[in-house]
Every structure is written in structure tokens, then in C-alpha cells.
């Protein structure tokens, strides 16, 4: 069983990448589970035809006795979707929500034992202990960093790698989600190389991804024959076959500026 987490700057496309990788793996016959750890609870929405599902935390908040079938929902090609949920921005503690919800999920469901692939879609940077819970609780065996070639997403990715290094967590690879930056693929490849890792995929920026998401679908489901679907399939294959990882060596800020200069 592969248990992966995709980290990266907020808004960089983690949920899009996670749901398309999940759909591509499901197409290949893998039993996939996606666990959305973002309080916005939208990680699985494009695997469920645009429908939102109840989150573990909202049911717990209501004092509900939770069972598996109330929080685990089947989406595209049997992908099992779970949303942790959490507070509105500016209140409470989303990180604690992840810790509590994952404990609850372990207690009430077997999805974390009987999947071929579990994807944790984790919010933004690892800004608190809770956001690192999937790693620190030993639930994640592979971590990937998603970035574009812009300075700020690279800065965030580099910071995340500092977190990995501190947690002793190896990095399985870097994925580039393009924002149409000049020499973008080269920049991110150089970044990955200097971390001691590898650029695993370059996902071009194309409108069809957004169009499908607005309709509530992954491109794999809605536009299976378009080029970008091929890119996601290739990335899914790489992830499923990936068996190497490195201890990332974060770059200095000066070096990051040089790379993006």
C-alpha cells in the first residue's frame, strides 16, 4: 500500500493534482482513497461530480456518533473520499482537527488498511504540528512537493522541505504545476536536483483543468482523451512505481532568488 501526501503553497493546485492522480490510478484498477485534510473540504469534490460530502469534524461537532458510511463516500471508479473538515478561517485550530479526525477515521473505518493508494491532500505549508500529523503519525510513507517556477511557490516548497528534513521525512519527488513562467521546467528541475530529488512531472497550465473543475469533475473523468489527462496518467504511473526518496537538502534563499531571477 502506498500512502502519499502532496504538499505545496496554498492555491498551487494540490487538490487538482491529487484528484486527477486518484482518478488515473482508479482507471488502472487500483483501490484508491483520498483524505482531504484542508478545512475547506474540497479535495474530493471533483471525484464526486461536484458534490460536497459531510466532514468528520462537522459531524463530531454536532455530537454525532460517526460510522464509516457517514464519512467515507465512493466517487469516480470507486475512489473512496473522506474530508476531515475544520473551522472557518481565523478561528479554532485546523491542525488539531486533522489529528482528531484521522484518529477517528482509524477507529471507525478500514480504508486506511485496505487501499492500494491513500492520498492525503494537506493544506498549504506545514504551518503547525497538526498539518504534519499524517507524517508524524507514520501514516504517510511518501511525500511529494508541488510547485510552479515562481519565486513564492518555490520558497514555500523549500520551506516544506526544511520541515521534512526536521521531521526526518524523505522527499519522493517534485512536481511542477505550471504558471506559465519563462524556463519554468528548467527552474523547477534545477530546484529538484539541488534538493537532491527529481522533477517527476511538468503539468502544463491549460484551461480545460479549470473548466472540468468548475463542472465538478477531474479532467481524467470529463476529458479523458485530452493531453493533460495523459500527463496526469503518466504522473500517476510514476508515483505508483516510485520506490526511491531522498533526504531533501533545502536551498538558501539567495540560491532560490538566483534560480528564479
Amino acid at each position: 500500500m502506498k500512502q502519499i501526501a502532496i504538499y505545496g503553497k496554498g492555491g498551487i493546485g494540490k487538490s487538482s493534482t491529487a484528484s486527477n492522480v486518484a482518478a488515473a490510478c482508479a482507471d488502472e484498477g487500483y483501490q484508491v482513497t483520498i483524505i482531504g485534510c484542508d478545512p475547506k473540504s474540497d479535495s474530493s469534490i471533483t471525484l464526486l461530480g461536484g458534490h460536497r460530502i459531510p466532514t468528520i469534524m462537522e459531524l463530531m461537532q454536532q455530537g454525532m456518533e460517526i460510522t464509516e458510511d457517514e464519512v467515507v463516500f465512493e466517487g469516480y471508479k470507486g475512489v473512496r473520499c473522506v474530508e476531515v473538515g475544520g473551522p472557518e478561517p481565523g478561528i479554532g485550530c485546523a491542525g488539531r482537527g486533522i489529528i482528531v479526525a484521522i484518529k477517528m477515521l482509524q477507529k471507525i473505518s478500514t480504508v486506511m488498511q485496505d487501499s492500494d493508494l491513500i492520498i492525503y491532500d494537506v493544506p498549504g505549508d506545514i504551518v503547525c504540528g497538526g498539518f504534519a500529523a499524517p507524517i508524524r503519525k507514520g501514516l504517510v510513507s511518501e511525500t511529494y512537493v508541488l510547485t510552479s517556477g515562481e519565486y513564492m511557490p518555490l520558497y514555500a516548497a523549500n520551506n516544506i522541505c526544511k520541515g521534512f528534513a526536521r521531521l526526518g521525512n524523505p522527499l519522493s519527488g517534485v512536481i511542477c504545476n505550471s504558471r506559465i513562467v519563462e524556463n519554468e521546467e528548467d527552474i523547477v528541475r534545477a530546484f529538484a536536483d539541488e534538493l537532491g530529488s527529481e522533477l517527476l512531472a511538468f503539468i502544463p497550465k491549460v484551461d480545460v483543468v479549470q473548466t472540468c473543475e468548475r463542472a465538478g469533475y477531474s479532467v481524467i473523468e470529463k476529458e479523458p482523451d485530452c493531453d493533460i489527462s495523459g500527463v496526469y496518467r503518466k504522473l500517476a504511473k510514476v508515483i505508483m512505481e516510485r520506490d526511491t526518496a531522498c533526504e531533501p537538502k533545502p536551498l538558501t534563499d539567495e540560491r532560490l532568488r538566483e534560480l528564479t531571477g
Binding site: 459531510p54 454525532m64 457517514e70
Partner: peptide, 9 residues
Amino acid sequence: MSPVPLTKE
């Protein structure tokens, strides 16, 4: 199946 409220304490 809809969520079952806990016995209200």
C-alpha cells in the same frame, strides 16, 4: 444512512 445523534447528555 444519516448520522445518529448521541444520547443527549
